[in-house]
């Protein structure tokens, strides 16, 4: 019980810090929208006619954007911990490293979800995906969006699970951002691949096209949550 309360306080602290500096949220949303816009300009104004192709385009733009935004958010979050020795302050309270890990995963997950809920509809709109959807899918649009957000959520969880450990490490190096992306991008290959497959399938058929890709997402998230949960102690305690 005490564990949940401690994790809760830590999450509260993380979210307070994320939203205290409002420029952060604004910056990251503007950044994401800009990335989306650049792709729209690059491929537009006439997008592929075929639904399948349009879906693929939307999926790549979405997941690419989330990846970059996620790297910025992770980096920023650990920068705050490292500056002024705040992480040492937390360690001195005797709080368990695994609580620190879980709170970080949850707080970055929530932050990124907020961003993704805003950016996803914008992207779909800009790429003009919604109008080419089959009539049957348009009828149940909210339900479709909900499923899409669900898939994105599982992918984001997997991304955060491994991202927290890696940025906990890379924050101690001179070239934080670039190093974080060099290490994190190959590691999150399955997330982006499976997430994009699910997204395409959702946008074209409204279903997941079998359970395989969603299971990849779930398995990945679970494997990396478990292993990172165990390894984070070494990142914090050395």
């Amino acid at each position: 019980m005490e564990a949940f309360r401690q994790i809760g306080w830590l999450i509260h602290k993380d979210l307070a810090l994320q939203f205290r500096t409002k420029d952060m949220l604004a910056l990251i949303i503007v950044f994401s929208v800009l990335v989306v816009l650049i792709f729209c300009f690059a491929f537009g104004p006439i997008f592929p006619e075929q639904l399948e192709e349009r879906g693929k385009l939307a999926a790549s733009v979405l997941w690419g954007t989330f990846l970059f935004a996620g790297i910025i958010a992770l980096n920023r979050s650990f920068d705050i911990e490292r500056m002024n020795g705040a992480l040492h302050g937390l360690r001195l309270t005797g709080v368990d490293a695994s609580y620190l890990y879980l709170s970080k995963v949850v707080s970055i997950f929530l932050f990124l979800m907020l961003l993704e809920v805003v950016v996803t509809p914008i992207t779909l709109q800009f790429l003009d995906v919604l109008t080419v959807l089959p009539v049957a899918l348009q009828a149940q649009l909210p339900w479709l969006l909900l499923k899409l957000i669900g898939v994105i959520a599982i992918g984001t969880l997997g991304f955060c699970a491994v991202g927290v450990v890696v940025s906990g490490i890379s924050t101690n190096t001179p070239g934080k951002e670039s190093l974080l992306s060099v290490i994190l991008l190959p590691l999150t290959f399955p997330v982006v691949m499976a997430g994009a497959k699910c997204t395409v399938s959702l946008l074209t058929t409204g279903g997941l096209g079998g359970n395989f890709w969603i299971s990849v997402l779930v398995v990945y998230s679970l494997v990396f949550l478990a292993s990172s949960y165990l390894l984070f102690e070494f990142v914090v305690e050395g």
Binding site: F189, P190, L231, V235
Partner: peptide, 20 residues
């Protein structure tokens, strides 16, 4: 310590990538 952590995490990816 840090590179050991990365050395472990990096390898866990293999089966997942393979099967996907």
């Amino acid at each position: 310590v840090y590179s050991a952590v990365l050395g472990i995490i990096g390898f866990l990816n293999v089966p997942i990538v393979y099967f996907s």
